[in-house]
């Protein structure tokens, strides 16, 4: 990226670039190269078996408090070698426009999650318990300040 000359300008004449450019093959572009990997169990949103990459940078989940008085909300994830770098990366990645006043980063593998297959039974108990909601009580309708 030299400040002189245009790195975008190929060595040959730029005017004819669109059609006369050298036909350079960059190798196979078979778009079915990527095969899906079926992975069953995992604790977080990320279902890769190993959350630490080759470079030793683990996966972190990022939670951002958008302003004072509000809860931290999950913003996304990122890779970082340690908590300090994860925080810095999270700042650069998720708060470039004042989106946050506070950030939490949590190693993805430290999060325990409910089993999605057990949806029904795990969340069963509140079902059929309408009486836990104010709307269940209709006789008081029209009574003020109740």
């Amino acid at each position: 990226m030299s400040p002189h000359g245009n790195p975008e300008e190929p060595a040959s004449s730029a005017a004819e670039i669109k059609r006369e450019a050298p036909k350079v093959s960059t190798g196979s572009t078979n778009d079915s190269v990527i095969e899906p990997v079926e992975i069953k169990s995992s604790t977080t949103e990320v279902s890769t078996s190993s959350t630490t990459g080759r470079s030793g940078w683990g996966l972190w989940e990022v939670f951002v408090r958008s302003s004072r008085g509000l809860s931290h909300v999950h913003a996304g994830s990122l890779h970082a070698p340690d908590a300090a770098m994860a925080l810095r990366n999270a700042r650069d990645l998720y708060t470039r426009r004042n989106e946050g006043v506070s950030i939490w980063v949590v190693p993805a593998e430290a999060i325990a999650a409910s089993d999605p297959d057990a949806k029904g039974s795990f969340f069963e108990s509140p079902q059929g318990k309408d009486y836990r909601h104010a709307t269940y009580y209709t006789k008081s309708e029209g009574v003020k300040h109740l």
Binding site: I34, P36, V46, S47, G53, L59, G76, S77, H79
Partner: peptide, 17 residues
Amino acid sequence: LYLYSAAETLGHTRDEM
């Protein structure tokens, strides 16, 4: 980076991509 993260949830590692 947001999109790589989304793709990772489907079972590909960042390194593979």
